[in-house]
Amino acid sequence: MNDAHTKRRRRDLIVAAVLALLAACAPLVVKDVYIQNIMVLTLMYAALSQAWNILGGYCGQISLGHALYFGLGAYTTALLFTKFGVLPWFGMLGGGVLSALIALGLGYPTFRLRGHYFVIATIVIAEIALLLFLNWDWAGAALGIDIPVRGDSWAKFQFTRSKLPYFYFALAFCCVAFLITWWLEDSKWGYWWRAVKDNPDAAESLGVVVFNSKMGAAAVSAFLTAIGGAFYAQFVSYIDPDSVMTFQFSLLMALPAVLGGIGTLWGPVLGAAILIPLTELTRSYIGGSGRGVDLILYGTVIVVIALARPEGLIGLFSRKPAPKGVPQ
């Protein structure tokens, strides 16, 4: 590995550490609860988009059904807590493991599909899961689950007086997702995924186990996505199928990576930092008109960014193309 590549990776870590430190200090300045809420959602979606980017960006398997894993994480945590009194931390890990196993099970047939057929399959599977949960009485069906509040506690991961604990967890979650991606990017798996994305047939001829590499990416991506779903369930204290498993969530995980720079380390972070505040602010300040002005503005910005920077916003910071085979 050349010195420039090593320096760049070290620089990525230093920049990430500085940004994380600045973010940790932000609540000391920003006291508005609404803005703090936006910051929590921004960090959460940055991590979720990073998770999606592992499968959709690096491996090239575009999934529009990640709401399935998000919902599984939320429901596993909520059900274990409300039905059996299991602490959310264990439910969070359980939801992650369950989602990873389901991703492996679903990957066995779907990874034999290519291109738009795979995309359609992921959408259909997620919609089937949504319908199942809408009619599953034990899980609350369409009424959902109201998570009881039992006092502020890190053990129960519930806080009613302040959003700061949620903010710092979301920040930690975002940092962990970033570090995992940073490590995987330069690992054997990272190079395998990029080879599979560019040309799976050529990669297989060179000894890459294409099917196994896709399965690995799906498992890691699903696990991290479920962790985000579990966090969201605790954050809002109420879930139903429409609030955690709709197609909207799948899009909100994919869009930051796509607009920030798909298959790049910083793309999901940059995309989320722009898209999520834009979504929340336009909905709050001009969405009340009932005329869809917020959606028009939001859609216009997305189209402009996509046309101006097809490679993603990360291209604004790229001085020159990276050598072939070296991650962006």
Rank of each mutant, 00 (worst) to 15 (best):
R319F: 06
L278H: 02
L295H: 03
T282N: 05
I314G: 04
S289C: 02
A322E: 12
L252Y: 10
L255C: 05
M253N: 04
W266R: 11
L259Y: 12
D242M: 12
T279G: 01
I276W: 11
L251M: 14
S318I: 15
I274S: 07
I296Q: 03
L297R: 00
T300W: 02
T279F: 04
I314H: 05
G292S: 02
Y238V: 10
L278T: 13
V269K: 05
F247K: 08
W266L: 12
Y285S: 03
G288C: 00
P321Q: 07
Q248V: 15
K320Y: 14
S237W: 08
P241E: 04
F247Q: 09
V269E: 03
L316W: 14
V269C: 09
V258Q: 00
T264H: 02
L270M: 15
A233G: 08
L270R: 06
Q234L: 09
L307M: 14
A233T: 09
F317C: 10
Y285D: 04
F235G: 05
F317T: 12
F235L: 12
D240H: 07
G260W: 07
L275F: 09
F235K: 03
S243W: 05
S250V: 03
V301I: 15
G267H: 07
V303W: 10
S237I: 07
I314Q: 06
M253Q: 08
V293S: 08
A308N: 07
S289Y: 15
A254S: 07
L307T: 09
I314D: 08
A254W: 13
G299K: 08
R291P: 00
R283K: 15
Q248H: 11
L275M: 13
A306S: 14
V244Y: 05
L316A: 12
L251W: 14
L275I: 13
G315Q: 04
I302F: 04
V269H: 02
G267Y: 06
I239D: 06
P310A: 07
Y232Q: 06
I276T: 14
T264S: 12
E311P: 01
Y298G: 02
T300L: 15
T264A: 04
V303D: 10
S289A: 14
I314E: 06
L265P: 06
L278Q: 04
S243Y: 04
I276M: 15
Y298I: 03
I305M: 02
G260E: 10
A308H: 06
A254V: 15
I262S: 11
V258D: 00
M245T: 03
I239L: 12
A306W: 01
S289W: 15
L278S: 09
I274Q: 05
P310C: 07
L316Q: 12
R283C: 04
S250P: 01
Y285T: 11
G299I: 11
Y285C: 05
F247Y: 14
I239F: 10
A233P: 06
V303Q: 10
V258R: 00
R309C: 05
L251Q: 11
D294H: 14
G261M: 03
I239R: 04
V304I: 15
D242A: 13
T246C: 00
S250T: 03
I262A: 12
